[in-house]
Computed example of a mutant assay.
Amino acid sequence: MNILPGARYWLNKVPQVTVLFWIIKMMSTTVGETAADFLNANLHFGLAATTALTGMLFIVALLFQLRASRYVPALYWITVVFVSVFGTLVTDNLTDQLNVPLAASTALFSIALIATFAVWYAQEKTLSIQSIDSPRRELFYWAAILFTFALGTAAGDWLAEGLQLGYANSALLFGGLIAAVALFRYVFKADAVACFWVAYVLTRPFGASCGDLLSQPASNGGLGFGTVEASIVFLALIVGMVTYLSLVPQRLKQ
């Protein structure tokens, strides 16, 4: 029996880490930031209703993702977009509703993420996303993803707003840190798994800072393109790239 070149790719429930993976991830992060602002402020849903709605959508998407027997690009990235929005709103609720300082939220979600990794490694002896091939590993994976989005939101807002660094400077800072992680990985041969998760956390505040920079009015330090326009553009780009990824395996089967 002949095995197709991409057959092993389907054994894992998450995509291969490529340049396209990081581009879609950062765009989904930007959509998470702008969509949360759009639902909360523009459509006047309010923070509580927006959180409840996106939380339910995330749970539904996650259930379908967990039931799938293989990696399905559209399903996976829909789940990422919803967890991005929901993770953003978790931090926003702590800040706006419960008056938890952003520094405290950053510390809280850092501890939660480290604890998730500790339990995950103790149970599975690996944190590699190249081996998300069992229900338990996938649950650990999505728990970590949720905490990375909440942590990235808290850290990004803390620097951009709490420390008044500004959206542009925050984007430059987190972009520089991502570049440093890439340097450590490819030049100094640092551990691939550690570099992946550090970069995954950093892409959240980087994407959010870019989203705020594009959507927020000039009076708030942004470029004033608006949340609707920014969300539509990035959603369209995500749909285009995910459609491409969905068609590639079909070409391999021909």
Rank of each mutant, 00 (worst) to 15 (best):
T126M: 08
A171S: 08
G224T: 00
Y141S: 02
A180F: 15
M1P: 10
Y167N: 03
T116Y: 03
V239H: 02
A199C: 02
A118I: 13
N169P: 07
F38P: 01
C195I: 04
R136N: 15
S128A: 15
A192C: 05
L20P: 07
T227R: 00
L214H: 00
L108N: 03
F58L: 13
A182M: 13
L57Q: 04
G222K: 01
Q164Y: 12
R70L: 09
A41D: 13
R67G: 12
L165Y: 06
P217Q: 05
L214N: 01
F109S: 09
F109D: 05
G211T: 02
P135G: 13
T51C: 04
G162W: 11
Y9K: 12
A35R: 01
F149R: 01
Q130G: 12
L63E: 08
P135E: 09
L139R: 14
V239E: 06
L75W: 01
A230D: 00
R251G: 09
P5A: 10
Q97K: 04
K25H: 07
T29P: 03
A150S: 14
A68D: 14
H44F: 12
V242Q: 06
V14W: 10
A150F: 06
T243H: 06
Q16T: 14
W142R: 07
L213S: 02
F86S: 02
V81T: 07
P205E: 05
F225E: 01
G162L: 10
I24R: 03
M56P: 02
T91D: 12
F234S: 06
R251C: 09
G226N: 01
V80G: 05
F184M: 14
I3F: 11
L43D: 05
Q250Y: 13
T95Y: 13
G224R: 00
L177K: 04
A74N: 02
I23C: 04
T29Y: 08
G176C: 02
D37E: 07
D96N: 08
G222A: 10
A168P: 00
Q65T: 12
F109W: 14
F184Y: 11
A194H: 08
L235H: 01
